[in-house]
Design a protein around this nucleic acid. Structure first.
Length: 382
RNA sequence: GGGUGGUUGGCGGAGUAGCUAACGCAUCAGACUGUAAAUCUGACGGCCUUUGGCCUUCGGGGGUGCAAAUCCCUCACCACCCA
């Protein structure tokens, strides 16, 4: 892997770069569509390519459960398996293990919002402090025990296991195994959890045998000093790049502040990936903080719910399933070059959604991805 | 003409004396940030001062009962059977 910075903004930390992998070059800043189960839901790999996806991120946790990394390996690796000859990332599975444990009980998320704050902050903290971990998950110094959401089997995933699986999957860029505490976790818990994440980071580096690019993950939740501490530590290790994970506080300002603290401690010359952030309004602020790539389920996820991204100049989301759009004969966005905007009108897509036709999901997934990728490019050049 | 069964909110459909007319669909609203996610939550007879309160409603009308979607009478309509 080679990362080349082409241009740096004078007004912010934003930068244009080229991330060279064995399977091609990624122009940054770049949005990374999520292909959890080795597919961008509703799209073929050809369609993902047509939507201008440069790189996709698949998931270790899901692919370990289904179909199992051995199947993928025997098929010649993830690229061949899913017919995607461009760059690929795999997430370590850390987030998933926790989002199904603490997350299920307490709402693992990126932002401490009204929804997951409702899940009894005090109880959460107390149960974590007193060691009452959720039934579904048991965290030890070596990793995490959890029950398979597929068949209930007891499974274990730790740094060694995650790296081994990711090596079998064979993505270009892989991530270290981290603990992702819930937004309701308190300072003491997050601090303690950093010790594990950092220890695991060292193990990931140590056990990796492949030539894959390995990104270390910075945690620290919404606590400034913990973010700094984590960033410093992870930056001191021999990673090829960095992921920034976890939760970022209760509002956008706090998120930007956390990113600021974190990025400050990371070496300029290495790529930085922000895990799981990608609301429309996040795009610009995140890029300005010096983030080179970021993945998010939102564009594809929203697409399947009928939420469309429109208006490149002042991006907003609209709910296409609303009846009123049946009278709208315009394309989603006149300035979007995607085939959906070229060939289809809003009222037709709205009709498909209201009629529960699966083509609606594909059309909107394609558009949202194309739109967001275009938007992230525009934001990067600003 | 006779008989049998039926008629429940926008639709389907439970309920056969008393508890909030269950449930499903449709509709409407909201949520969603490293996807157990083509999902979830809420509303869905009306009105109000909405953590509550008042009224209305099970084809129409009448009756019995403290109390009726539920029992009785009658009318209308639908389905099937007999003539």
């Amino acid at each position: 892997m080679e990362f080349k910075i082409i241009k740096k903004s004078k007004r912010s930390r934003a930068r244009l770069g080229l991330l060279k992998t064995q399977n091609g070059v990624v122009e940054t800043p770049c949005f990374v569509p999520v292909a959890t189960q080795a597919v961008v839901k509703t799209l073929t790999s050809e369609e993902a390519e047509q939507a201008k996806c440069q790189i996709l991120i698949a998931n270790t946790f899901h692919l370990h459960l289904k179909p199992g990394e051995n199947i993928v390996k025997k098929s010649g690796g993830l690229h061949k398996f899913m017919n995607w000859q461009r760059p690929l990332m795999t997430d370590s599975g850390g987030f998933q293990v926790f989002s199904l444990g603490f997350g299920k009980d307490l709402g693992t998320g990126k932002i401490l919002n009204a929804h997951n704050a409702n899940i009894k902050l005090i109880d959460a903290d107390e149960s974590i402090r007193s060691g009452n971990q959720p039934k579904e998950v048991k965290i030890t110094k070596d990793g995490v025990y959890f029950n398979s959401p597929v068949d209930g089997r007891k499974l274990f995933l730790g740094p060694k296991e995650s790296i081994k699986i990711q090596e079998d999957l064979g993505a270009d860029i892989i991530f270290s195994f981290d603990e992702c505490p819930p937004p309701s976790a308190d300072y003491k818990y997050v601090k303690g959890s950093l010790l594990k994440t950092h220890e695991w980071a060292k193990i990931c580096l140590k056990v990796k045998k492949s030539r894959q690019t390995l990104f270390g993950i910075v945690q620290g939740g919404r606590y400034k000093d913990l973010r700094m501490e984590s960033a410093k530590f992870i930056a001191s290790l021999d990673f090829d790049g960095f992921g920034i994970g976890g939760e970022f506080g209760s509002d956008k300002k706090q998120m930007v502040a956390m990113l600021h603290q974190t990025v400050k401690e990371l070496p300029d010359e290495k790529p930085r990936h922000l895990l799981g952030i990608g609301y429309l309004k996040d795009m610009e602020s995140v890029i300005k903080q010096g983030i080179d790539s970021f993945d998010c389920t939102i564009p594809t996820h929203y697409a399947r719910r009928g939420m469309a991204f429109i208006n490149l100049k002042n991006p907003v989301k609209i709910d296409l399933s609303k009846k009123s759009f049946l009278n709208n004969k315009n394309p989603l966005d006149k300035n979007c070059g995607c085939f959906v905007c070229q060939e289809y009108k809003i009222n037709y897509i709205t009709h498909l959604f209201r009629a529960k036709e699966i083509t609606a999901l594909k059309l909107l997934t394609f558009h949202n991805l194309y739109f967001l990728i275009l938007l992230s490019k525009k934001s990067g050049k600003k």
